[in-house]
Simulated scan of single mutants.
Amino acid sequence: MGSVSAADEVLDVVDRDDRVTGQAPRGEVYARGLLHRCVFVQARDARGRVFVHRRTASKLVFPAYYDMFVGGVLGAGEDYAGAALREAEEELGVSGLEQPAPLFKFLYEGPGGAWWSYVHEVRCELPVTPQASEVDWHTWLPQEELDRRVADGSWPWVPDGLEAYRRLTAYRAG
């Protein structure tokens, strides 16, 4: 990307059926609340702990909030599978990660806007070196501790990640 700012990155704009209807720069997509596509990847280590991180204070949306997913928006022409692997490797700071497994897709509508959100999972046994521009703190939390941190409300969670987490919990419960 080089010197191109995040706001200038071109995204696919989609409709409520997740069909591409056009393209627009990310800044315009956010400003106008246009529907677009995101991936969410839950990464677990060899012991089954979940990668949790705090976003940097410079992020365009939800700065300094916590998230239990890595991921991000799809660029124009990108598919969910490609974005899931790219974003997971970028945010975890690894290469050679296995392809994240797709689980389910939902339309997020809430604080920050609205976007199609495809939830994936991946096992990461590689040492992680998260992107300093994206992540200012990280750890691997046991599932029980993650559940407790969500329930007690002591950490501010990104609202889309929180909804994805709730849906993932229900999905896993059958």
Rank of each mutant, 00 (worst) to 15 (best):
P100H: 02
P100D: 02
P100K: 01
A101T: 12
P102K: 07
L103A: 05
L103P: 00
L103I: 05
L103G: 01
F104H: 10
F104P: 07
K105G: 05
K105H: 06
K105T: 15
F106R: 07
F106L: 08
F106D: 05
L107V: 13
Y108E: 02
Y108L: 04
Y108K: 03
Y108C: 03
E109A: 14
E109Y: 07
G110H: 09
G112H: 06
G113N: 10
A114S: 15
A114C: 10
A114E: 11
A114W: 09
W115N: 07
W115F: 12
W116F: 12
W116R: 01
W116Q: 01
S117P: 04
S117Y: 01
Y118K: 08
Y118G: 02
Y118C: 08
V119W: 00
V119Y: 01
H120G: 00
H120L: 04
H120W: 05
E121R: 13
E121G: 05
V122T: 11
R123V: 14
R123W: 13
C124K: 07
C124A: 12
C124F: 07
E125Y: 09
E125P: 06
P127L: 10
P127H: 14
P127Q: 14
V128S: 04
T129W: 09
T129H: 15
T129D: 11
T129Q: 11
P130V: 11
Q131E: 13
Q131W: 08
A132G: 15
A132I: 13
S133L: 05
S133C: 01
S133H: 03
E134D: 12
E134G: 05
V135P: 00
V135L: 02
